[in-house]
């Protein structure tokens, strides 16, 4: 038994050594004249873009099985401007960062909020989408952020909303809320309807989409944490990041961005969200 345990530990130790993230290797390679992501994408003629499949209206699979949404259209536009084929890879909140680190995708147009803690693992493009985190509540029960102090609230597990809300509560001297973490957003909304939680905090766009068509749920008008979505990129590959940033700016400058935005979030779309910011443009 004892020897078996030692053998097991040995195997685990070896696997730790061989499992350094690939993206860091490739960065070293790039500095020493090896292949950067851009070279590889050009050579293969294919860019692999991670896109979420469970996040309407930004990216989801519709009833006919078509993968559609704002992020999907933007990803296609980027690939087209890079002059390469697109390989769409389905990711979710848990896989989008690890797939980037392991080099299974070249970029992630996956509703990724740009945070400092995520910067430790991957790089980000300039902001391409603006929103704010807030609460979805049952209509008529609560109307301000202060009402949520000390309540039982739902959040997505791993969401940046968790830390942001805790900081907001502390800064405003409120009673800490009891946070229930959900991996399934649909289940979180159901918990809110069932009364198991009093509020559900997430990005405004996500909540607006989830609550669309349900008159019993409403969004609080104030937000507690501005959210900036960036495109996730492999760590330490500045050439690739430059190209993606320039491409985004080109898409903004010639108006294609607004075309895509209005298709999914404009005044005639099912879910409506006023454009919340302006892209930085470098001359």
């Amino acid at each position: 038994m004892y020897r078996r345990f030692i053998a097991l530990l040995f195997v685990l130790a070896v696997s730790f050594v061989i499992t350094q993230p690939v993206a860091q290797h490739s960065a070293v390679d790039a500095q020493s004249g090896g292949q950067s992501t851009l070279d590889r994408v050009r050579e293969n003629g294919v860019v692999r873009i991670g896109i979420r499949f469970d996040n309407p209206p930004l990216s989801y699979i519709d009833e006919d099985g078509n993968w559609v949404g704002f992020d999907v259209d933007l990803a296609n536009e980027i690939a087209q401007r890079l002059g390469v084929e697109i390989e769409q890879v389905r990711v979710d909140e848990t896989t989008r960062i690890s797939f980037l680190q392991e080099g299974q995708i070249d970029l992630a147009v996956a509703s990724m909020n740009h945070t400092r803690s995520r910067e430790d693992a991957v790089d980000f493009s300039i902001t391409y989408f603006w929103d704010s985190q807030t609460f979805l509540v049952r209509k008529g029960e609560f109307d301000s952020l202060d009402d949520m102090f000390g309540r039982v609230v739902a959040m997505n597990s791993g969401s940046s909303a968790i830390g942001a809300w805790q900081r907001y509560v502390e800064a405003n001297g409120g009673t800490p809320s009891e946070i229930v973490e959900f991996t399934d957003k649909v289940a979180a909304v159901q918990a809110l309807r069932d009364g198991a939680v009093d509020g559900y905090a997430e990005d405004g766009i996500t909540l607006a989409a989830l609550a669309a068509g349900d008159d019993s749920l409403v969004l609080l008008s104030e937000g507690f944490n501005p959210v900036q979505f960036g495109i996730g990129l492999p760590e330490n590959d500045s050439e690739w990041r430059d190209i993606i940033n320039y491409t985004l700016q080109d898409i903004w400058l010639d108006g294609t961005y607004f075309e895509i935005y209005n298709r999914w979030l404009g005044p005639e779309a099912e879910v409506q969200l006023p454009l919340g910011g302006e892209m930085e443009i470098w001359r």
Partner: peptide
Amino acid sequence: SRAILSSNLQNSQYAV
């Protein structure tokens, strides 16, 4: 089933 639930904004009511 996960994809179907998020395929249409109204579908979340049928989760269970």
